[in-house]
């Protein structure tokens, strides 16, 4: 007996849902809910975190991410322009930088900036500068590639029109090309901000003062006095308060730019649908 194509698709979908439900139920039965409640859902332990986790943790996470993003964006733009320069040494330098900082874990960069650089140069950075520089140096490597892809996605005719109105090359780049490039790359840049938000947790490596704690550090410190793991859950939820709106924003921007999209900084290709 032959099923119609549509009927067959319905059956397949039905089976998929069935498997999902069975898997979820099996998982739920396997979990010891009593234990979970004790370990993660302790209302008293959660309550003791407030308001510090918001006023200090959430605030500092936001500040660290924003500072890192600002440094990364500025440096990333410089690197992107160097990458496309006609001057060989600029290109090589930018390429070497990007390969290096994309290749090493952010954790090592934090250690280098927190301890190595102050030792080598006999200067002391405060925590905020250390975080801004470490996150910024790593973020710049990714953002440089995104920005370059965005600049290259702006039609060549835009530069030609600008130049034939008498604009010098630099003016054409900064007043015509870059503003359009940033419109195109807003979605991937938003993702970059999400990554930096999470990477700001690496600040725990540095010996930081109590009012410089961010979410992860506050959660970990609270563990020392908490009978259970609830602080970790709360800290995690606080990250989602930041990252979910950001990814919604990214998706909205992507829809609004009408299908023009640049792939993630990991891949070099880019797709531009007219």
């Amino acid at each position: 007996m032959a099923l119609s194509k549509r009927r067959r698709a319905q059956v397949v979908r039905g089976v998929q849902y069935g498997v999902l439900v069975v898997a979820a139920v099996a998982l739920a039965l396997a979990v010891d809910w009593q234990q979970v409640r004790h370990a993660f859902l302790d209302a008293d332990a959660a309550g003791r975190l407030f308001p510090g986790i918001i006023l200090t943790g959430l605030k500092n996470t936001l500040v660290y991410a924003a500072l890192g993003f600002a440094v990364g964006l500025g440096l990333g733009l410089v690197l992107a322009l160097m990458r496309m320069s006609s001057v060989g040494p600029y290109r090589w330098l930018a390429t070497a930088y990007i390969e290096f900082f994309r290749g090493v874990p952010a954790l090592l960069v934090f250690i280098a900036f927190g301890f190595g650089v102050p030792l080598a140069f006999q200067i002391r950075f405060d925590t905020y500068s250390t975080v801004a520089l470490s996150l910024g140096l790593v973020g710049a490597a990714y953002m440089a590639e995104t920005i370059r892809a965005g600049i290259q996605a702006v039609p060549k005719g835009q530069v030609e029109a600008a130049r034939s109105l008498g604009m010098p090359a630099g003016m054409a780049m900064f007043t015509i090309v870059i503003p359009q490039a940033f419109r195109i790359i807003l979605p991937p840049l938003t993702n970059e901000l999400i990554l930096l938000t999470k990477d700001s947790s690496l600040v725990y490596l540095l010996g930081v003062a109590r009012d410089e704690y961010e979410l992860t550090k506050i959660g970990r410190e609270a563990l020392n006095v908490s009978p259970n793991l609830t602080p970790i859950l709360v800290a995690g939820l606080c990250y989602l308060i930041i990252t979910i709106p950001l990814s919604q924003l990214s998706r909205y921007l992507e829809r609004r730019t009408g299908g023009r999209r640049i792939s993630s900084p990991e891949s070099t290709g880019l797709e531009v649908k007219a």
Partner: peptide, 15 residues
């Protein structure tokens, strides 16, 4: 170039 205007097939308005 300030004194030479150019009009392109693809318009090239700054979008």
């Amino acid at each position: 170039r300030r004194r030479i205007g150019m009009v392109f097939q693809q318009f090239n308005l700054f979008s």
